[in-house]
Write a protein that binds this DNA or RNA. Sequence first.
DNA 1: TCGAAACCATACGGTTCCGTATGGTCGTAC
DNA 2: GTACGACCATACGGAACCGTATGGTTTCGA
Lengths: 183, 183
Amino acid sequence: MAQRRTKSEWVDGAFAALCAAGIDGVRVEPLARSLGVTKGSFYHHFDNRRALHLEMLSEWERLGTSMIIDVVDDAADDPEARLRLLMVNTYGADDVADAIEAAIRAWAAGDEVASEAVRRVDDRRVGYVAKLLSEAGMTPAQSTRRARLMYRHLIGEFIWRTSGGPASTRRELNEMADLLLVR
Amino acid sequence: MAQRRTKSEWVDGAFAALCAAGIDGVRVEPLARSLGVTKGSFYHHFDNRRALHLEMLSEWERLGTSMIIDVVDDAADDPEARLRLLMVNTYGADDVADAIEAAIRAWAAGDEVASEAVRRVDDRRVGYVAKLLSEAGMTPAQSTRRARLMYRHLIGEFIWRTSGGPASTRRELNEMADLLLVR
DNA sequence: TCGAAACCATACGGTTCCGTATGGTCGTAC
DNA sequence: GTACGACCATACGGAACCGTATGGTTTCGA
């Protein structure tokens, strides 16, 4: 028994295919080939192709929210320090994470279920940034505005990089943080 | 002879398909059906599918640069006024333009030629914003940094909206402009 | 050791699509 | 009125893929 594949290996392979060719590129037979098995394996683990897509969304939603927030909360106490740490972490150029983020958003443009997952993740992340800004002394309304501002900038950074643009420099990130904290 | 289609009608239909299903959704036979003709028409106007894709890129590159800039240059004189006008214009929620912009960027993530077209458009737009900021009294280096900051935010706005999020409010846009002009 | 379940290969029918080949139908120029 | 080019329909071969059906192999508990 040379090749045995778990369900999560199928999901990992699906993310790779998603980045390479979008959600329509997440196809059963090519995926099976790349995993060194046949479709038989796939239809053992999943009911159909759509079930794999939904599994990918769940996985991304799980990783995309709690992970970043928990790390930042543990690593710093001051809200301003947390904000700067958050920016360094999330803006850090991680090609894989970038590509997944961008591909999921592209997917969400044409799929209602994906769109809902993205909205949930966005709300959670923006809410966290707003909380930090609020703890740094801003009014709730301004915290929300600036959090959304920063989050749009962050998304732009992802997409910019996946389109081939250069990452923001450390200087640019510092300036961004400074502007967010201007009163 | 009820139905005759021009080359540009094919391109228009291709953009609609691009928004709905990504570049892989720009397929000859479905497109022909939606235009009420058959493939025979397509292969009269284009050599192959790739030729249509390249035609789409040219068209987007042409519209995506000169149009916005010329309008703003004509409508205001003061660089700060031009910046605010540019933001109102480009951030204005145009669902069709948003979707095209997002879809082209998604396409660029996996296609070198598309990626080059996006980079050319981005450079031209960022250069224009940097020129405005420079004319408003900033140093060249800071103008470039802030222009890139704004442009990333703008891309984030596009993607955010196509993922189902709400558009930036006028209040948020004003705050963004204010922060860009902070010294 | 025996049987059930987990896991996968193989073969198959059906669908969608690309690109080509071929021929038909207009308008227009001469 | 005919010759030609622009434009399109139809038919076809070939490829990629989905999902099902079926049967083989491995694992593991009773």
